[in-house]
Design a protein around this nucleic acid. Structure first.
Length: 213
DNA sequence: ATCCCGAGGG
DNA sequence: CCCTCTGGAT
């Protein structure tokens, strides 16, 4: 199967794959993305509505007490670092960017808690810039379906995906890989028995040889 | 390479 | 019980 054929099939399986983080503007998406590190979007969506209600703008959050922020986000884990990150994110936006979300990779990654992956999500979801954010799902799926090798770094995975996938499909591919990874080709118990990609999957073949599938 | 970390699933 | 979750900073 070609890259386009794989994406066509994924479109068929997940026609409404999209960003599931609750947000109403770029600031809120940036906060939600930072909070989503090593946490499920479900758990993030559980706390952000109340958080955004209390701190709707970078200006209001910039003046928040970090302890109060921690209280709101405690249930998602890693809450100490994340509270510091989103407080610094709000302060950085106000102090360096006049409260307006920047639209370049170089500027975005200067914000605390925002690395390459989060920046790519903000660029593609908020500003429709072609980008492929490589998170845990995208990395796993890319390696299982042989878009990349197992020991490739996330940056190498991103470069290979950009090379092998048409630029016009980058943003869709990101969400399709996420949905496929989240609901079908999961880390622990992937649904190999009903998977349309078993031919080009390294993991499934390994399992077949062992008689697992 | 290590740390951060609670919640949900199997 | 153990593993995983839209990672980033040190």
């Amino acid at each position: 199967m070609t890259s386009n054929e794989i994406l066509d099939k994924l479109e068929e399986m997940f026609p409404n794959a999209e960003c599931e983080l609750i947000h109403e503007n770029p600031f809120q998406l940036a906060v939600a993305v930072v909070l989503s590190a090593q946490a499920t979007d479900v758990s993030v969506n559980k706390v952000t509505p109340e958080l955004f209600k209390k701190y709707p703008t970078p200006q209001t959050m910039a003046k928040a007490d970090i302890k109060d922020i921690e209280k709101y986000i405690k249930t998602i884990g890693l809450y100490h670092n994340k509270a510091k990150s989103i407080l610094g994110l709000a302060q950085g936006l106000v102090g360096e960017f006049d409260g307006v979300m920047p639209q370049t990779m170089d500027e975005l990654i200067t914000l605390p808690g925002v690395g390459r992956k989060s920046a790519n999500v903000i660029l593609s979801v908020c500003f429709e810039v072609p980008a492929i954010a490589v998170d845990t799902h995208v990395e796993r799926i890319s390696k299982r379906l042989k878009f990349a090798y197992k020991n490739d770094t996330v940056l190498e995975v991103e470069k290979k995906l950009m090379r092998k996938i048409d630029k016009s499909r980058w943003n869709r591919a990101h969400h399709l890989f996420i949905f496929f990874g989240r609901y079908f080709c999961t880390a622990r118990n992937p649904k190999c028995d009903e998977c349309p990609f078993t031919e080009q999957c390294c993991d499934t073949k390994a399992k077949k040889m062992k008689g697992i599938v």
